[in-house]
Design a protein around this nucleic acid. Sequence first.
DNA 1: TCAATGTTGGC
DNA 2: CCAACATTG
Length: 450
Amino acid sequence: MTAVLWLRRDLRLHDLPALLAAHEGGQVLPVFVVDPALLATAGPVRRAHLVAALEDLRESTDRALVVRTGRPEEEVPRLVRESGAGSVHVSRETTPYGRRRDARVAAALGDVPLVATGTPYAVGPGVVRKADGDPYRVFTPFSRAWRDHGSPPPAPPPARLRWRRGVATEELPGADGPPTHAVGEAAARERWAEFLDTDLARYDTARDRPDLDATSQMSVHLKYGTIHPRTMLADVAAHPAGRTEAARRYVTELCWREFYADVLWHHPASAWSDLNDGLRSMAYEDPAGTPAAHVRAWEEGRTGYPFVDAAMRQLRETGWMHNRARMVVASFLVKDLHVWWPHGARHFLAHLADGDLASNNHGWQWVAGTGTDAAPYFRVFNPVSQGERFDPAGDYVRRHVPELAHVPGAAVHQPWRVPDGLAHGYPERIVDHAAERAEALRRYESARAA
DNA sequence: TCAATGTTGGC
DNA sequence: CCAACATTG
């Protein structure tokens, strides 16, 4: 009997042990349904990573992968008919849209079961709850309960899968260029081993430094499911430095990803609207209105604040941005340019190769002061002092902003104070941070009063 | 109070 | 034809 293996971006073969157990003797038809809307909203770098991930998936299925463009509720039943399959296997969906879509597919399949096993999380969303059964809304108690809950060991890699062949496939979608980070299962394993060898031990001190390349860079691999967080947790626990503060810190960062998935599970509307009502009457600028030039300058890295601009250019050019920089540029859009956070979240999701709805949008809500555990609204990141503190030699700025290559050291964070600092085309500041910080606080006070 | 695309159902 | 609705990250 044939089983359809309906693969999604964030779950790969080694995460479906139930399928393997059920089909030791059968044939497996691996399928990926391309959603045109998904490609349409992706910027060029994000698209390049998606296409490369599909190419890797095709290789890791011995080129048996069948690609179809269309609506899953039509394409999946069609593939079942074409192959005579008796079941369809998927990962358990965790986003609100995904859950609705899977319900439609299950209905369209009729008697053929849609079997959901596996999750791209160590502990599935919706599992960790308070004693009274309610979900957590604060990270720290969630992380304790999550740690105490524990997670199953990683599933063994698949063995003896027999691929079903002869079902027509489309060509993979094309991309404008190669991805900027290697994607695929081999690349994920390679980077993970390198991180454990070189960067885990210094993770707690170096992780906040965008100039040092000391983060794990595992986000894109988690996004595409080419490594499972249970594998990572087991490897950290078994590592010589597994009991250190640095390792604990890394596990906490993995827990943030699980926490935000859990929040989205319980509050689907929080993807694109304020989770907390407190700032409902906040006055924001319309990004399509007069200050549109400001938003475009932010997107293109021309705000005149070097740390912000380096980060925004890193995003567009490489499809990735250091987490410290993500917080600073988000604060700049929301509190210096007074733009509602979903505008920024959308831009991030279009360009980040690792962009994940739950982590990205709740991270934005955290900065904007509307989310779980949110930073209080009056806490405004200073783009200059953040740069001086976390890029102390200015290397990060010069790496991404060539117009400032001639400014040495930390002076690069305030080129307007350097003779000839703006001589090679770097722009003047589009706003005055101190004035806009005060303006943000004024708006916050009147929103609270309302 | 996301933006962009695709679908539907009125005429 | 096009406005309203649905869908995606």
